[in-house]
Design a protein around this nucleic acid. Structure first.
Lengths: 148, 148
DNA sequence: GCTTTGAGTTTACAACTGTAGTCGAAACAT
DNA sequence: ATGTTTCGACTACAGTTGTAAACTCAAAGC
């Protein structure tokens, strides 16, 4: 039942910290701090605070190693990305999500393999895709008043 | 230079209000409040606050009509959706964005036309797609330590 | 004209966020 | 053993967000 728990809400600044730890798999605070000090002009205490909050939120695990801690991700990167993205999309009008995806895909750098994977999945999806996805912005639905 | 200004940062709750106004094109507060009271269990004053903040943020325009205001969107829906989505994606590891999109597309309800549009755009993109998009989580890049 | 009522404004307040200083204890060097 | 460096914990503080009550006018009704 404890399925990786992607529920924790990670803020923008915290996301930067997670990316470091996700990439390195494990890191001590010295490493995290020095890397982030390069990327942003954050002071060390700022980064310490972020790390602390992530630990409290259950996004990072700690392992005492001598005087200091080794931090490891407690939630996986891809599921966290997936659900953050889905959350964002689900907050928007269902009818316009497709267009938003088109626009976003246009602007994004995607690898050949990623584009191919998307093509494959969409090809499959094409068969069962409904003729239209109605707007879900109004309580009742959006009949009539919500034409594109 | 004043290109619709999609810069305003709209919070989750505020987004609900915008969706109503975007869908109706124009609405008075009574309408907005009554619709949102149905969807959520928000009290009227809560919704008034949200409307007020959106006006201050420049996301809604007001037109005095007798005793009350008519609210109209000052920013367009689709660009707002696009940039919110892009912002979210750009905050994540470049290397994994493609996979996130695949997962999200799988879980989303998309119309036939939307799927087709995505297929078209991706087909075009396929030709120029790079072999791989490197991880951009670490300051220097991510050579070696960032294998999938 | 005067009162009622409803729309917008102001105030409230806790939680979360971005940003950062300070402190105490532990580890290290001498 | 003592001074020093260092790491994590605690404190701080303003701005945003979610949530909502109170207040203030001016328009609408009588």
């Amino acid at each position: 039942m404890a399925t990786t728990e992607v529920t924790a809400t990670i803020s923008d600044a915290e996301w930067r910290v997670m990316r470091i730890v996700w990439t390195l798999k494990r890191a001590d605070s010295r490493t995290i701090i020095s890397l982030l000090e390069q990327q942003h002009d954050w002071k060390a205490p700022t980064i310490k605070t972020l790390i602390g909050r992530l630990v409290k939120k259950g996004a990072l695990a700690t392992t005492k190693q001598g005087r200091q801690f080794i931090y490891t991700p407690k939630i996986a990167e891809q599921p966290a990305m997936d659900s953050a993205l889905l959350r964002e999309l689900n907050q928007m009008c269902a009818m316009h999500r497709g267009t938003a995806l088109v626009h976003v895909v246009d602007q994004l750098d995607l690898s050949h393999a990623d584009v191919q994977a998307l093509l494959d999945h969409l090809q499959t999806k094409l068969e069962t895709a409904p003729d239209n996805v109605p707007c879900d912005c109004l309580p009742d639905g959006c009949e009539g008043s919500c034409e594109p």
